[in-house]
């Protein structure tokens, strides 16, 4: 104890740094925590959001969601409009106005793009910390494990929701500027007033958010289990594709209803003259049930996990 003391003086003038160091602050005798530490204040949402928002992949995703509608507009403007089917579908109606263009964009994004975006935000959030080695520092801070998961999941879900809202908003604006603000024509015929249209779009976004919760939960669980961000995101997308493939096997009959992606396009029921809820309710309940199971699994796994990253 005395020997190091002499060093302090012999090296005065170099990087000292510690001369102003006061004695330790003291601790809470009950918990042993440093004064000022409160587990409920660790990893505030704002900090986590800032960590994620400053990442290039986050910005790229949002930029892509802004650019995609413009690309689609360009594609429609460039390509010739050859109609070969008799029944008007969402594709044929895409260029009739802002609302139909938005519906088209959502329709082509539901199966893959939105799945990848949500899987990226939810699957990458823990796994990338592990791959940067920063996860162990957060846990040693300590951010309690359950709280770390909660804060990370909330921010991932918030970013996913923002992406899910951004896409229709930019589509609506792009569609309005280039194809006009006409009231939407429903695939089954008829139009809706603008107020009703926006309400229906809102229903669709909420439904998509609920069904994509399953993807988020799956990716989150995989992200907790692996240290490789690609493994978590890719694994979640692969399992979603597997579910889609099984859903295409009609021999499975009503068993397919229990597949997590079976109802992923049920939001089109909101485009009927009167909204049809039953498929959407089934889809939402299945999604919530699967999400609950997967998230509980993620929590249990992470509580017991040895952090070796």
């Amino acid at each position: 104890m005395t020997a190091p003391h002499t060093h302090t003086h012999t090296h005065a003038g170099a990087h000292t740094g510690l001369e102003g160091a006061t004695p330790p602050l003291g601790a809470d005798p009950r918990t042993g925590a440093a004064v000022g530490y409160d587990p409920r204040r660790t990893l505030p949402l704002r900090v986590e959001l800032r960590r994620q928002l400053s990442r290039r992949r986050t910005r790229l995703v949002f930029a892509f969601l802004v650019v995609l509608p413009l690309l689609l507009v360009a594609a429609f403007k460039l390509g010739s409009n050859s109609r070969d089917g008799q029944a008007p579908g969402l594709v044929d109606l895409a260029t009739t106005g802002a609302a139909n263009f938005t519906l088209f964009t959502l329709f082509v994004s539901t199966g893959f793009l939105l799945v990848v975006v949500v899987a990226l935000f939810a699957g990458d959030t823990i796994a990338s910390e592990a791959s940067w080695s920063s996860l162990r520092y957060l846990l040693a801070m300590p951010v309690p494990r359950a709280r770390l998961l909660r804060q990370k999941l909330l921010v991932a879900l918030g970013l996913s929701l923002a992406a899910l809202v951004l896409l229709p908003v930019t589509s609506y604006l792009a569609g309005g500027v280039f194809f006009g603000w006409a009231a939407p024509r429903l695939p089954l015929g008829g139009t809706l007033p603008t107020g009703e249209t926006l309400l229906r779009l809102g229903i669709i976004v909420v439904y998509l958010a609920v069904t994509l919760l399953f993807v988020a939960a799956l990716a989150f669980l995989l992200g907790v289990c692996t240290d490789a961000p690609l493994g978590a995101v890719g694994g979640a997308v692969l399992l979603v594709i597997l579910s889609n493939i099984l859903d295409a096997v009609t021999a499975l009959g009503s068993l397919r209803h229990a597949l997590p992606t079976h109802y992923s396009y049920s939001w089109t029921d909101a485009l009927q003259p009167a909204v049809s809820w039953s498929a959407m309710i089934s889809g939402a309940l299945y999604s919530l049930a699967y999400s609950a199971v997967l998230l509980v699994a993620a929590w249990i796994r992470f509580q017991r996990k040895d952090i070796t990253s």
Partner: peptide
């Protein structure tokens, strides 16, 4: 894991 006393520990690991 997550013991509050860890707030009095600074660490550099691997």
């Amino acid at each position: 894991a997550g013991a509050p006393v860890l707030s009095r520990v600074g660490a550099f690991v691997e």
